[in-house]
Design a protein around this nucleic acid. Sequence first.
DNA 1: GAACAGGCAACTC
DNA 2: GAGTTGCCTGTT
Length: 268
Amino acid sequence: MKRIKLCSADELDIVKTFECGQCFRWNADDRGVYHGVASGNYAELETKDGLVYITTDADESFWRDYFDLGTDYAEISSAFTGEYLETCRQFGCGIRILRQEPWEALCSFIISQCNNISRIKGIVEKLCRCFGDELKAGDVVCYGFPSAERLADLTPEELAPLRAGYRAEYIITAAKAVSDGSLDLEALKRMNCRDAVKELRKLKGIGEKVANCVVLFGLSHMEAFPVDVWMKRALKENFPEGFDPESLGAYAGLAQQYIFYYARSNGK
DNA sequence: GAACAGGCAACTC
DNA sequence: GAGTTGCCTGTT
């Protein structure tokens, strides 16, 4: 593996980005180095002297895209005005909206429903170990996210060891739809956000919240605005007269992530 | 043992 | 259409 200087720590705060609830396969070791897998590529990230370094076999261009480094977040978030949004933006600065694999995002956010992060991570990890391809990067052995094709033929009984509960059925339903072509995730990327959400919601077990997470984190629709119980609470407290995400424009999803991260960290 | 958790579907009025 | 309930599992 090679070690590359990726970007400045201002552009990418690895702690905030990996801990803000958008992804489930990145974990820090006791030295603060994050280890993870994306699209079958293993990487380690660390911050040193204001710079982010990445150790990986994959191309730098892959990771630049994954971390959305071509987008100027300072510029696009200047549209988030008002005291509260500015506080959230400042608090969350350095968060990147990861451009995750569509299928991985769909499957992961199905698992996320009514679940806490550590349990979600545990289930996703077991899913990869049981059904994903083994990957080798240097001395490290890890597992890729299993394809929809691989999961489509499984029975709920075969997924039972994951302890995903009633979500197992939803995973299989989604895997079948993706593998038989009735749900074309790449096509959803090219659709507008609202239609993509509508398509995803046709699947059993995919509601408004999960669909919005999938389009934001897996399909790069930055205007998506997932609202869960934390967001509901935060918006109610700070915008008692109501709040319209469309007022935030094409990058509402970034604002959502700032608000969410602030709410989760402060309880407000 | 009961209540609850980053949600959804099915059912009620 | 707004409100209620069961659902797997794990934690408190």
